[in-house]
Amino acid sequence: MNQSDIEILTRLRDEKTREDSFAELIDLYQERLYWHIRKIVITHDNARDVLQNTFIRIYRGVHTFKGNSSLYTWMFRIAYNESIRFIEKNKKEMYHSIDDVNTNYLRTLKQDTYFDGNEVQMRLHRILSGVTEKQRQVFQMKYYDDLSFKQISEITNIAESTLKSSYYTVVKIIEKKITLEL
């Protein structure tokens, strides 16, 4: 934990400054958390709901945060877990098999009002729909959320070596498919 985290936590744990510091925390992190969630749950509406739940969990759980990781990583882990919980819940209701999940990825994307993908973007999504959910999440966390492998490992509880392997596998698949299509 760095000095900034300690200061924020101190204010968050003080009843007098709690609400103001929590508002600051939302300002600081909500955008990054939103995009992290959006890439997992795909649609804007789902991401909005999961983001709200995430911040409510952060607010409730701030007293239990032990400081083993940075505040930023801890918040990402909550957002990640909330997103996975959402996906799992919907999987049971909507999907019948793992193939269905990947087919559904593109269908869900196209149904989203706030998705406006052109041909190039759709090509990337098609490639991403062909890898496993975990591989996709690892790639997105590394490439778009700009998280280190150490941070991703803390968030997902997956060994760094496995994460690296997953990431480079997806990178190779993307490179190969794009080269073939060109």
Binding site: F22, Y34, W35, H44, Q52, F55, Y114, D116, Q121, L124
Partner: peptide
């Protein structure tokens, strides 16, 4: 890269809703 969009003033509204 991904074609994702968000409504105008979304983060401001979300902050208000959470608080």
């Amino acid at each position: 890269d991904l074609g994702y969009d968000i409504p105008d003033g979304f983060f401001k509204d979300t902050k208000a809703t959470i608080l």
